[in-house]
Each structure stands twice: as structure tokens, then as C-alpha cells.
Design a protein around this nucleic acid. Structure first.
Lengths: 247, 247
DNA sequence: TCAAGCAAGAATGTATACAAACTTGGCCTG
DNA sequence: CAGGCCAAGTTTGTATACATTCTTGCTTGA
């Protein structure tokens, strides 16, 4: 992943061969524009002009067009024929809905994992991050650094389960949910400081259920686990203790 | 939709201006290739050569490339950098899994519809197709023609609920499930002759639950409604009365 | 003054030429 | 004879010129 400290699409990258360099320019440009959009370098609704982008990126319009099309089909951009691409606006309602969708998908992934059994490497990965989380949360105080560290642990846990589900379409769809801003499980912890321990305990229970091949329990636990973040998000967004959805 | 009787990508379309003609060639070509692939004009795994397609369609490679990229991101084609596009193979397991995913998504749509209320036009549409279904199924015998007619009714019912869910991402994902061969609700009836009446009764109950704003019941009914088709599919594919999933 | 229409500019859509990568076949070498 | 290497051909990737569509601002007429 490109350095996040500077703009992903600043330089034509003259001699900086340090970057991994994707197989094609289209792919590398896709990555750079995606990073820039997710980093909020364009305001929501802003149009992305092909020529301007191609000049900033030092490539022709062809790979830029390809990248924009990719990002539009990911749901990150909006496309209108003959009118180009614009950064998609996500309403609060859409962000909240994305959590509901993700809850269903991740619940299904947990069920699949329970039904199909955990491969050895996934089992190891999960036990490792569970232990790491135990250590981290044993500390009396959780500072900024700890929460960032836990965010990575959280991501690894969920990814291991997606992988254990062994269902490509499901993985694709969950990834699509993460393209909605603030809906990624990497961002989860930020507005949910106090409940990290509860979430971690959820992880333990989910793992237990999957190990025990208890598909129903795994599904229900995961569904509640993800959906509870939605509740926290709504609370945080509205400032009210129990928010009523406003569309 | 183009006529299904002849190949969707046969002619360069010399003077046949009768076709609706999409806003751009890319879009129209996308539609034609999608139709052709879904109609099985290419065998699974077959590579789609850009030049050959562009010659057959009478356009340049540019819109063809755009179309192929679209279809790949829909999940209909497989893409490898520098190696082009191929018709995606769907294993039996993937087709079955797509039903599970669709069951979750449609269940969520039913819940949203119940929570958010049915707009007047959707309510009318559903009541109309429910009545049409009642009439159709009142006949003592259901022939081929009736089943085709019911297939359309079935599709309209489900689409009305997707629309009532008022969640674009959910609609997109359900559409993606339908790009999996044999997973479309248009194909459902074909291997499920005897249970049409039961399915139609499901529809009535789902509608009642949504009308009553009983989100939980609507979700559960819809989930079982879609998942039961999976069971029928597995049974039909394996020939056994109760199949064990083989991967 | 206002509205409609038109024309110039700018943006996207398409075609095509060229570049890079992959594939395939044969040849050479061990 | 087997294996690998090289080269020609094929296919995809990229750049660029041209076509089409849309936007915008002005002009012109009522």
C-alpha cells in the first residue's frame, strides 16, 4: 500500500521504483485513485475529470478510464453516460444500512466456517490474534496506540473467518461493504472505545462456536457482533442515547 | 432486451435501428455480451478475445474492453492481467452458496420493507401479482405456459420487495446473485414444479408480515422461502432425496 | 426583459496505431 | 532424447487522434 502521508496521486513517480508496481498501469492507477478517494482527497460529489487525473498521474486517459470504471463498479464512484464519474455520496442511512448488510454477510461467513470446519492455518491465525488481544486488553489502560493495535487484530480475526468460509462471492460482497466509508472494521474501534473488551469476548465466543461446529450459534453471535457496531455508530452520529433513523 | 432467438452478438447491426440502442456503445455491447454469456453461447472457461468480439459486434476494441471489464466486475467473467477475460466457471458449490447469500440478502430486504413501510405503488404491484398468482394457480393443471407465466409473477413479487427495501447496495448485491447461472428467480420454477403453490402461499405470508410491519417474521419467512429453493436445487442436482453437499 | 436557440468550448466516447507481455513452436545444447 | 532457450506470432495494454455529446454563455427575437 502506498504511503498514506502524502497524496496517492501526487507525482508521476519519476524514478521511484521502490513501489510494488502492479501488473498493469490500470491496476496501479486504480489502487492510487481508490486510496485517494478513501483518504478523502476529493469531497463527496466531486467530479473526477479524466484528463486532469491522467495529467496528475502521468499516464494517458486509457488506464484512468479503466480505473474509474472499476471504482464505479465497486460502488466508490458514481457514473453517468457522457457525464463522467463523481465521488459517490453516502448518506448516513446508506452507511448504517451497509452495517446491516455486512452483519448478514459476516454471519453467513461464520456459519459457513462452522459448517465447513476451520483449516489449520486459519485456526492458528485466530488463536494467535485472540491471544494477542488477551495480552493487549490485560493492561489496565488502553491508549491510542493500543486501540490502533487492536484494530489490526480485529481485522485479522474477521479476515480469517471470511477465508474459512471458503466462498469467493461472499468474500467479494463483504469487501464491497468495506468500501463504504466508516463501514470498515478497521474504523470500528474509533467510536467504540469502552466496548473493546466486550467485542474481544465476542470473538472468543464466535471462535468457540465455530470450533464446536455450532453453525447456528456462530451465525447469531457474529450477526449481533457486527450489528452492535451499527448501534454504536448511530449513537455516535446522532449524539442521542438511542437514535431514531432519519432518512 | 434483445430477441433471445438469435445470437445477441451476431450482426454488426447494419440498419436495424429498431433496437433501443443504449446511451453508449460500451453499454450496448455490455448488454449484448452479457446476454450471450448467460444464454450459454460460450462454454464455461472459454476465453473471450477482444479482437474477435469487436469484429463480430462491428465495433472497435475500446467498447469491448470496457464491456468485458464490467462483466468481470459483475462476476460473470474472470480476468487475469495480460491474459484477458474468460467465462467464469461456477462449481455446483458456488451455485448453491449463491442461494444462501441470496437468502440472507432477500431476507434483509424483506425486513427493511417491513421496517420502512410499503410505498403505495409497491403495495399495488404486490397485490396485483398475488391476485394474478391466485387466478393462475386456481386452475387444476399447471402446464408449461402457466409455469412460465408464474415465473414472471414470481420475479415481479421479489423485485417489488427489493425496491421497497430502499437500499441501493442491497439491490446491487441481490442483482449480483442473479448473475450466477441457475440462481436467478426466473429459473426457480423449472426444477420445482410441484411446490409452486407452497411458494405462492409463502408470498402471501411475506406480504402479510410486511404489511403488519412484522420485520422479524418477514425476514424469517423470506429467508426460508429462498433457502428452500436451494434445497430443491441440491435435490435435483444430486438425484438423491436429501443430498449431502459435495465440494 | 426574458426566453429560446445557437455556437464555441470542454468533457467524454470511440477508433486506431504502437508497445509490452504472453504463447507457441522449433532449434540448440547438454 | 530431454530440457531449456530463443524468436516469431498473437494478444493484451497504452497512447493518441478524432467523433460525439454536453455545457455554457451569448445573441437575437418577441
Amino acid at each position: 500500500m502506498p504511503r498514506m502521508t502524502e497524496s496517492a496521486l501526487l507525482p508521476p513517480d519519476p524514478d521511484d521504483a521502490a513501489e510494488p508496481r502492479a501488473a498493469t498501469r490500470s491496476l496501479s492507477v486504480t489502487e492510487r485513485i481508490r486510496t485517494a478517494v478513501l483518504a478523502g482527497e476529493f469531497e463527496a460529489g466531486a467530479r473526477l475529470h479524466e484528463v486532469r487525473l491522467s495529467e496528475r498521474l502521468g499516464v494517458s486517459r486509457t488506464p484512468v478510464r479503466s480505473a474509474l470504471q472499476s471504482l464505479a463498479s465497486e460502488g466508490l464512484l458514481e457514473y453517468a453516460p457522457n457525464r463522467g464519474y463523481a465521488v459517490r455520496r453516502f448518506s448516513t442511512a446508506e452507511i448504517v444500512d451497509a452495517y446491516e448488510i455486512r452483519a448478514m454477510m459476516e454471519a453467513l461467513a461464520a456459519r459457513f466456517a462452522a459448517e465447513r470446519g476451520l483449516p489449520e492455518n486459519e485456526r492458528e491465525a485466530i488463536e494467535r490474534v485472540l491471544a494477542e488481544g488477551d495480552d493487549l486488553l490485560a493492561r489496565p489502560e488502553l491508549g491510542e496506540e493500543e486501540r490502533i493495535a487492536y484494530s489490526a487484530i480485529n481485522g485479522t480475526f474477521h479476515e480469517a473467518i471470511h477465508s474459512a468460509a471458503r466462498c469467493r462471492m461472499l468474500g467479494d460482497m463483504i469487501r464491497q461493504c468495506h468500501s463504504v466509508p466508516q463501514s470498515s472494521h478497521r474504523n470500528v474501534i474509533s467510536f467504540e472505545h469502552m466496548d473493546v473488551r466486550r467485542r474481544h469476548d465476542d470473538h472468543h465466543r464466535i471462535y468457540d462456536a465455530i470450533l464446536a461446529c455450532d453453525a447456528f450459534r456462530a451465525e447469531m453471535l457474529m450477526r449481533e457482533h457486527v450489528a452492535s457496531v451499527k448501534t454504536s455508530l448511530v449513537r455516535a452520529l446522532s449524539g442521542r442515547p438511542l437514535a431514531r433513523r432519519g432518512r
